[in-house]
Every structure is written in structure tokens, then in C-alpha cells.
Lab assay of single mutants.
Amino acid sequence: RKEMTAACTPRRRIINLTSVLSLQEEINEQGHEVLREMLHNHSFVGCVNPQWALAQHQTKLYLLNTTKLSEELFYQILIYDFANFGVLRLSEPAPLFDLAMLALDSPESGWTEEDGPKEGLAEYIVEFLKKKAEMLADYFSLEIDEEGNLIGLPLLIDNYVPPLEGLPIFILRLATEVNWDEEKECFESLSKECAMFYSIRKQYISEESTLSGQQSEVPGSIPNSWKWTVEHIVYKALRSHILPPKHFTEDGNILQLANLPDLYKVFERC
């Protein structure tokens, strides 16, 4: 597991931080080997919608929660590849102030007048994250320049770009939802926020969305749709870069829909 690298990086740093090793061990302890084997050997059937997909393993048909699986995938990559990410360069710098204002204007932020003026909160978020810029760049390849612009994001899987519609809320939550006081809790909560931002979430995906850094293989055609990215990038990574937690067998994120021999018997009677 320590050699797990989802995106190509030129050289690998050895990380011996106790906090990170502890988080890696927790993933191992909570892992479910049968689910790992199923995901490793599954045959992708198709997307139901951005949140759900169908896959077959041996004779069984499964309904998989793409949102939760991708979130767990990105969390584990962030923990196992800690401080070893490439950088996704933004085509132009994104001012943190503008991103924070967009987030505060969104109902998702939960902002009320009692929280104070949005401009003041946005300025605080910019200054707060600028103070964390060195650590964010060093460990997470999340790059913020001296003017308070976001200029780079971590490359977690080759050819995958997170849904940038979720970027404003991500920046807001970096400042408000991460435990910045304790090292282990900081790395864990920061990785979880980043994983949620990178995950496939239906509120940020339309039929026209593209999450891939590449064009489709047909010359002159439109960019790959999110469905292509889910199948050929995300579920491909799920084959080798995730140890599913045991609770996925109990919380409805992986559901067995049918045993195909039983279905064949039904059709034979028709």
C-alpha cells in the first residue's frame, strides 16, 4: 500500500510523520478485503446518474454509490500519497476573496446577518489561508500566491479535474471546517474536505460537464463527458487505489441488486 500512486510524480518523498502513518493504519484496520476484491475485478455496466452506477462482479449485479466511493478513493490517495502530488495549474489565478464571496452568497454556506458582513468574512478567509499557504503547498500541492490567488490544485489521478463549480464552497470550508490546531486532526479533516471537493457530486455535474483533463479519443470531437470520466478514470482507479471500509457493506453505498443465475431462471419461465 505504501507504493500506491494514482498520479505520476517525478520522485517520491518518504513521509514518516506519526500522524500520517496513524491515518494510514486506520484505513488498513477499517478495510474490507472482500469489497476490495469485488472492486478490483468488477465489470463496469454503466452510470445511472452522477451519484449511482451499476457494476457486475462474477454472477452478481451491484449498485454502487459513485459519490461515496470516489470520496473515499480521493481521501485514501491523499493519505497514502501525502506530500507526493503533482499540481493542476489553473488556467488563470482565482482570487480567494472572490471565491469566498461566491460561497457566502450560496445558501449552502449557511451565512446569516449575525455572522457579520460577507466582505469582512471573505477578507478573513483570504488572510487565514495565506498564512497556511506554505503547508498547503508542501503537503497538498494546493498553491496560493502572495496576492491571495489560488493558482494550483493537487493532481490526485492523472487526467482528472475536480468539478470546479464546487471550488468556492471548498475554499470556505478549508477556513471553517478544518481542525487547524492538532496535526493528525488537521491532516485528516483537510484531506476529507479535499476528497469531498474532488468527489463526483450530482449538484455540480450536468450532462455537459467534463471532468477530464483530456479530449476524447476521436479527433475533432467534444470533450469527454462526465460519464466517460466516471467509467474510464474514476472506476479504473477504484480497481487498484481503494481499500473500501467495512461500513460500506452496511450503509447502502454498495448494494447487491441481483444474482444473475437467479434472473436467468426467471427469464426461462417467461
Rank of each mutant, 00 (worst) to 15 (best):
N149S: 04
R173P: 00
Y204I: 06
D158H: 09
Q256I: 11
D251M: 11
C47Q: 10
F170Q: 00
N179Q: 05
T18W: 15
C194A: 07
C270E: 14
E26M: 04
R12Q: 12
P50S: 08
V126E: 13
N253W: 04
E165G: 03
N149E: 11
C270G: 15
S199K: 06
R1L: 12
K118F: 15
N49K: 04
F128W: 02
P117R: 15
A175R: 01
G152W: 01
V218L: 07
Q214Y: 07
T249C: 11
T18N: 08
G120W: 15
L69Y: 11
F97Y: 03
D145N: 05
R36S: 15
G120L: 15
D251C: 05
M135H: 04
T67A: 09
G152Q: 07
L153H: 00
S22A: 12
I151G: 06
L255Y: 13
T210P: 07
S240Y: 11
E183C: 03
K192A: 12
Y62M: 09
H247Y: 09
A55Q: 02
E188R: 04
T210K: 08
V34A: 07
K132H: 08
F128P: 01
P117G: 15
G116S: 15
I171S: 01
E26S: 09
T67Q: 09
N149K: 03
I27N: 14
A100G: 14
S191K: 11
N65Q: 13
N149I: 08
W228E: 07
L129T: 03
I254R: 02
I200N: 10
L156C: 09
F170W: 03
K60S: 11
L69S: 01
M196F: 11
L54E: 03
F187L: 05
E119N: 07
L238D: 00
V48H: 14
R89Q: 11
L102N: 03
N253D: 05
Q30W: 15
P50W: 06
Y139S: 06
S106G: 08
A83M: 02
N41F: 08
S221V: 09
L102V: 04
P261E: 07
I144A: 01
D98K: 04
H247T: 04
F197E: 00
S106M: 02
P107N: 07
A94G: 02
P219N: 04
L164A: 02
E72T: 06
D262L: 13
R173N: 15
A103T: 01
Y139L: 06
D145K: 01
E147A: 05
I77V: 06
E26N: 07
L96F: 00
N84V: 13
M135S: 04
G166L: 07
L102G: 05
N65V: 00
A94K: 02
R11D: 14
V234Y: 05
N159T: 08
F44W: 08
L104Q: 01
V234L: 03
M38E: 11
E165D: 03
E71H: 03
P117F: 15
I233W: 13
Y204S: 07
E177W: 15
I205P: 09
Y204L: 10
D145V: 02
F97I: 03
S221G: 10
N149P: 01
L121E: 01
A83Y: 02
A122Y: 01
I205V: 07
G166A: 08
D262A: 07
E143K: 03
F267E: 01
Y62D: 00
F44Q: 04
T176Q: 01
E72K: 15
F267G: 03
E92Q: 04
P93K: 02
L121R: 01
E123F: 15
T9Y: 14
A237L: 14
H40Q: 12
S225E: 12
L260D: 07
D138M: 04
E123W: 15
D105K: 04
I77Y: 15
L260I: 03
P10K: 12
T59M: 07
H247W: 11
N49W: 12
E92V: 06
Y264P: 04
S141H: 12
G86H: 08
G213T: 10
N49L: 12
V178H: 01
G110F: 05
E72C: 07
E188K: 06
E217D: 10
M196S: 07
G152F: 01
S43N: 06
I242F: 12
Y124T: 02
K236Q: 11
T176Y: 01
L63W: 05
A94S: 06
D105G: 15
S141C: 09
Y80K: 02
T210H: 07
P163W: 04
P10D: 11
I27E: 15
L64G: 01
E113V: 02
L129C: 05
S141N: 10
N224D: 10
I144P: 00
S109I: 15
D262Y: 14
G213M: 08
T18P: 04
S199F: 01
L174Y: 00
V87N: 06
Q214T: 08
Y62P: 00
Y235G: 12
V234A: 13
F187R: 11
H42P: 06
Q203N: 05
L63E: 10
Q51G: 07
V266W: 15
I15R: 13
L64S: 10
L21Q: 07
A94P: 05
S19Q: 05
I15A: 11
H57A: 09
E113Q: 04
H247M: 11
I144N: 01
E26W: 13
F197N: 00
N253C: 07
A100W: 00
Y75P: 00
M101E: 05
R36Q: 13
V34P: 08
I14L: 07
W111F: 10
R269D: 11
P93Q: 06
L260R: 05
E114Q: 07
K246C: 14
P107T: 08
V230A: 08
D138E: 13
Q214N: 07
L17H: 04
L90D: 00
L190G: 01
A237S: 09
E217G: 08
T66A: 02
R11N: 11
L174C: 02
L153D: 00
W226Y: 06
K227I: 10
A103L: 00
E3I: 12
T5V: 11
R36M: 14
Y235V: 13
N224K: 09
Y62G: 00
R89S: 12
E231L: 01
E188T: 09
N84F: 14
T210Y: 05
Q215A: 08
G86R: 10
Q56G: 03
K2P: 13
N41M: 09
P154T: 00
R36D: 14
N41L: 07
F85C: 08
D98L: 10
L64T: 10
Y264E: 04
E188Y: 10
I233M: 14
I77S: 14
D105V: 07
W52Q: 09
S225L: 11
C47N: 09
A122N: 01
L136C: 14
E143T: 10
L164T: 02
R11E: 12
S141I: 04
I222M: 07
Q203V: 07
V178D: 00
G46P: 00
A94N: 02
K130E: 15
Y235R: 06
A237N: 09
P93R: 04
S91Q: 07
E183Q: 01
K236S: 13
F97N: 02
N49D: 08
P244M: 14
K236L: 02
F82H: 12
E25H: 12
E127W: 15
I254Q: 02
L190A: 02
E25Q: 11
R269F: 15
P154C: 00
L164R: 04
P154F: 00
P163N: 04
T229G: 05
Q203D: 12
F248Y: 06
E183F: 04
E92L: 09
E177S: 11
C194T: 06
L121A: 03
P245Y: 15
T9G: 10
T176A: 04
A122K: 01
V45Q: 05
Y62N: 06
K60W: 12
L190T: 03
P10T: 09
F197T: 01
I254C: 04
R173Q: 15
P50H: 03
H241I: 13
A7M: 12
I222T: 03
E37D: 09
K60F: 12
P107V: 09
S141F: 13
T249G: 12
A175Y: 05
L211M: 05
G86Q: 11
F82Y: 04
T18L: 14
L129Q: 00
L90M: 04
H241F: 08
R239Y: 12
Q51V: 07
G152S: 03
G31S: 11
V178C: 01
E193D: 01
D251L: 08
N65P: 06
